[in-house]
Design a protein around this nucleic acid. Structure first.
Lengths: 207, 207
DNA sequence: TAGATTGTTAATCGATTAACAATC
DNA sequence: TAGATTGTTAATCGATTAACAATC
């Protein structure tokens, strides 16, 4: 079995398992069954078992999973044992909203710096460094940045993307509503924020 | 065939088709083949054909699709012929970023009002009305609002959700990182912004 | 007719879920 | 042993893509 592949959907549920396990661990509980987890999180028990299997595979019939070691496995897969640093370009409303968002840390990623071509961009209450675009390259090289987030407008997204890959960034998350071209070997995730709303609207209109 | 089901993934591609068709239509082109569309948008030709089929199904062998009627079909399915109004609760950074986002209109949805419990929330340059939470019910009833967007914190998301369903809202898009409970018959889309970044990080770490 | 183009059928893959076999 | 619980196998569904049949 390929231990190296946690499906995307599974990955999305892992922080919920982790949170629950920490609670019962604090209560002193040593073992837990997939059924119990499923019941608590309103999920199917088979799904929980499959998910946990992709992560650890240490369950024992009749006993369940060892809470402590499961927590460790989850933290490992989620990357919480070795955080990855990411940078963001485009400190507009969306960009600054992402800087405030706590969820990324649950998945082992920290946005440690934001860049904007406009030097006058308002420095908000966030703890992240806000830097001018001209220091982008040196910053990325110094911190060996591998992940870049694009929250600029459609017009400059490809330019920013090119700069990022040129500075050694290997994975890009793009919020601009346009397709980007990246060199071979660079990962690209295109975010389509509108799609969920579109889907809701469509379901509503056709029901 | 069930004409009433355009798959979610297909729906996401429709605005791209529409945009391209408008360009060639402005050039006076009467017909277009799926192959030509695919080539231009870097997609598979079979995929384009399946997508267009879900929308119109009026292609003719050797000729292709009628550009004008295809545009009309797309505008219809995308809901651009009768826009749906939506409201948003939580005028923080994320909420205000969404208010500025143009993409929703491509899918036939307009966010016409935003609400916040904090009366002092800064009125930004956006054209959308920004109102205090106390006028939420009357506004929704007056405008027969069916779609609500939640961009408040985890702590108040369920409360806002309850108010929404109580005011007749039938579809909810939730950005707060927590599961919501909705009455039967109410559609719920849970947004997990962190997942794409998590997935990138995971792929990067396991490659 | 010939060939371009459509639309359909079948294969594959990821995700979910039910049924079942294995095991402590 | 008996039964709770795990893990696997098979069915289903949505999405993508290749192969092919239909048609203008």
């Amino acid at each position: 079995m390929d231990r190296n592949t946690v499906p995307r959907a599974t990955l999305g549920r892992l922080p919920r398992y982790l949170e629950y396990l920490k609670v019962i661990s604090a209560d002193g509980q040593k073992n837990v069954s997939a059924t119990a987890i499923a019941k608590n999180l309103c999920l199917g028990d088979v799904q929980v078992r499959k998910d946990l299997n992709a992560v650890s595979g240490e369950g024992k019939p009749k006993v369940g999973y060892d809470v402590i070691s499961l927590i460790k496995s989850l933290e490992n897969v989620l990357g919480q044992s070795s955080f990855t640093d990411a940078v963001l370009v485009g400190a507009g409303k969306l960009g600054r909203a992402l800087l405030d968002f706590d969820e990324f840390e649950k998945y082992g990623v920290r946005i440690i710096a934001a860049f904007d071509s406009n030097d006058k961009v308002i420095k908000t209450g966030s703890k992240t460094v806000l830097l001018p675009m001209k220091s982008f390259r040196s910053y990325c090289e110094e911190h060996s940045i591998k992940i870049g987030i694009i929250t600029v407008g459609e017009g400059s997204a490809q330019t920013v993307c090119d700069i990022m890959t040129d500075c050694g960034i290997e994975a890009i998350w793009n919020f601009a509503p346009c397709r980007l071209t990246v060199p071979d070997g660079v990962l690209l995730q295109q975010e389509n924020l509108a799609l969920s709303l579109a889907h809701l609207n469509y379901q509503l209109a056709n029901s």
